[in-house]
Design a protein around this nucleic acid. Structure first.
Lengths: 197, 197
DNA sequence: ACTCAATGTATGCGACGATCACAATGTATG
DNA sequence: CATACATTGTGATCGTCGCATACATTGAGT
């Protein structure tokens, strides 16, 4: 008879998985706890055992997103070359690739409204992300390919363009073709912008 | 007795104004047509006479936002100097200043989900915005302060950093202080990035 | 075996967006 | 001025939502 057991097994993971799918297919606005519960064949109140509020679920998704982004970027550095240009290029493509492939998720990750408690875990993840970029800039400086100056300020000039490129591209970009040539230009401009005089 | 007249007078404008206020104070997620109606002392269904859906109201807000942004940027160019650096600086500060002062509105403007009909008017507005920036780059080229190349591709390398700076700053920026020094760095980097070789 | 925390069910509440029939008002036309 | 018509607001209804509560079932540790 294969009756659905009273306990789901791993409802929390199932909720996250299904939520991310809906997020990808229909955007974050279309996320409904009740719908998730229906889809997973579970009662409307069940999700609240794992996420005390809808915002908590969104926070968890954002956190998961940061972790995946970190992995993706870290992986991109493994096969990359030694020069700052090569490593920046790899990092940029990883970052932009992930962002475009997970636009709604990115939106969540960089959304301003997280519950205060979740913010803590999120800030930790975001901090690790920042450190990755600081380290890239730092080695670039040691190799003499990046101008001198405070790490964080230079990193900002590296990441703002990438983040902005993603934002524009996702917004239905009134700007030049979303083909990757735009990204090439942006990366080249970043490198010129942070090169030593 | 000052009884409220049956007709409001200019409900549409009142809705937009009030909506923008709540948008600024409590974010776009907190916008409710019913609440707006209550605040304006009008029945729950009344707003639908002016905005057939909530999304339509958001679209109208976004459109209004683009118009104000255009004005702001145009005004910034009036008092600016002649060099590309001066004009870019003025434009960047106008753009970033407006964006930070109207973060939630910006979010709406660059949100991916607009109803197809509204998209048309929105694209017109966005297009005018793009043209402003193309023109800035174009005169920069004529003055020999900006490298040769397709206008739109160079403009992308100018605006992506600004747009990204705003995005990071609004996200509670895990990056360096939201003080304006970060913006100075970004602007300087943009200028180096698009300078002739 | 018994207890207790964890997890899922069932139900209800108030708010929401959307839609509808209807009422009040403004306006153009005779 | 009167009458027809379009515009705008009313009030009620529908289905959905997030959230809270009281209760049922399960499994883990003693």
């Amino acid at each position: 008879m294969k009756k659905r057991p009273y306990h789901h097994g791993d409802l929390r993971a199932a909720l996250l998985e299904r939520a991310e799918q809906t997020l990808r297919e229909r955007g974050s606005g279309a996320l409904s706890l009740r719908e998730l519960a229906r889809d997973l064949g579970v009662s409307p109140g069940a999700p609240s055992r794992h996420f005390k509020s809808k915002q908590a679920l969104l926070d968890a998704l954002a956190l998961e997103g940061f972790e995946r982004l970190l992995e993706t970027i870290a992986a991109s550095q493994d096969g990359a070359g030694r020069t700052f240009g090569e490593r920046l290029n790899a990092m940029a493509r990883a970052y932009v690739g992930f962002s475009l492939a997970n636009a709604a998720l990115l939106d969540l990750m960089f959304s301003a409204k997280h519950s205060p408690e979740a913010s803590e875990a999120l800030e930790v993840a975001a901090h690790r992300w920042v450190e990755q970029s600081l380290e890239l800039v730092s080695t670039g400086q040691r190799q003499g390919e990046v101008r001198e100056g405070p790490l964080d300020r230079i990193a900002l000039t590296v990441f703002a363009p990438l983040h902005g490129y993603v934002g524009l591209a996702v917004s239905g970009a009134p700007l030049p073709g979303p083909d990757r040539r735009g990204l090439d230009d942006v990366i080249a401009s970043i490198i010129r912008g942070c090169a030593p005089d």
